[in-house]
Design a protein around this nucleic acid. Structure first.
Lengths: 211, 211
DNA sequence: TCCAACTTACTTACAAGTCAGTAAGTGTGC
DNA sequence: GCACACTTACTGACTTGTAAGTAAGTTGGA
């Protein structure tokens, strides 16, 4: 028992919280939400820990106590965001078939009321292609997984077995959703994201059925 | 004649170069190319003037002499990039009808051999949605213009007169191109940009013809 | 044609600020 | 009583931007 506790010696609290106190989880959540705001509004590079800390009601050293480093905070935030989505609506990975495609449109519709979330996603995915960016692996994995998932659903819905065409269609669909977000952020009135996405999905499925 | 020269008094060299010396243009170009590299690799916020200057063979103060501020450099770089494109291939604004759609596919094909350019575009367009980003206006204008241009060409090619559908199709096409670039940068072997774009355009035109 | 007056294109040095991260200490809940 | 959840205080690395100086280039006029 003593030995089990021993291996926390010298470790930063961020690495693994062994015996968190009662309100620790909600304090960490406050920080993660603040990070969404700040990194969303300013990007990861320009977003300062001091501002994150301020919004969470502590000092920047307090934030580092929880997450070890700025990079650690970003990674935790990205994971938290995924978990939150899953909690909010039926988990993505569990939705199947046509329902999943509808789920995509619903999510996009919801996003038009959550500008901050969209902005954070757009800024960070753009930044993630820079050299050694801490979110690089996250977005690489995300795209990879999402592509496989969508290709699978499209196969199921359309009956197509053309692997390459399915993969291309999945990539194109994801690309369109992401690209529309940037245009929408810059000129909200000019872009109706759910309408465009919905129509594109319909056409896509119809085309795959025929081919 | 004296009065015409007089109004340069006290102005920073960056604001307007009145009587540039022989090699000034090529020195400025060297800086702009360096800026493409640095801002492309690290983003605008993390990209430092010192590194840009180093690559152009001068000090960071020399860069500021030419462009006044870091922001000024970015804006100049974006304009320079547009001009370069126009010089390289038949100017976008002058290409008409179906040729323009082929031109889009050609450009995307070329881009697969110019990773740096694509990376700079992706990073900066992502960053541009943050609060008060100096490239905000540039990208807003770019999307606005490109949307109008593509919608016009699609109308011409397909014979459709449904303004909303044409605008939506244009937005979707641009979104797809931009989104594919990010995915391609993260996983080049998984994404064949020209193939996906070419196929999408074909389907799009066919659909607009019918509708 | 040559020269003085001026501008351009930089450099070096510095100012002023911001930032992430660390070390050491404090109080509080378990 | 001790680990946890912080704070305060500080460091050092980087930032952009400015000021002042210098060498080279340009131009108008004698």
């Amino acid at each position: 028992m003593e030995t089990a506790r021993d291996d926390t010696r010298g470790r930063p609290a961020a690495e693994r919280v062994q015996r968190p106190q009662a309100r620790t989880t909600e304090r960490r959540e406050a920080v993660l939400k603040a990070a969404m705001n700040v990194f969303g509004a300013r990007g990861y590079n320009k977003g300062a820990l001091v501002e994150v800390a301020e919004q969470a009601g502590m000092t920047h050293a307090g934030v580092l106590h929880h997450f070890g480093s700025k990079e650690g905070l970003l990674v935790a935030m990205l994971k938290y965001r995924d978990g939150e989505e899953v909690a909010g609506v039926p988990a993505r990975a569990q939705t199947e078939g046509p329902a999943f495609l509808q789920h995509l449109v619903d999510t996009v519709e919801e996003n038009t009321h959550r500008r901050g979330v969209v902005q954070a996603y757009s800024v960070l995915s753009g930044e993630s292609v820079t050299d050694g960016h801490p979110a690089h692996d996250y977005f690489q994995g995300r795209f990879h997984g999402l592509r496989a998932k969508i290709a699978g659903v499209l196969a199921e819905v359309s009956g197509s077995t053309d692997e390459q065409e399915l993969a291309d269609a999945a990539s194109a669909l994801i690309a369109m959703m992401d690209g529309l977000q940037v245009q929408w952020l810059l000129e909200p009135d000019a872009i109706d994201m759910p309408r465009i996405l919905g129509r594109t999905i319909d056409e896509l499925v119809e085309r795959l059925r025929k081919g």
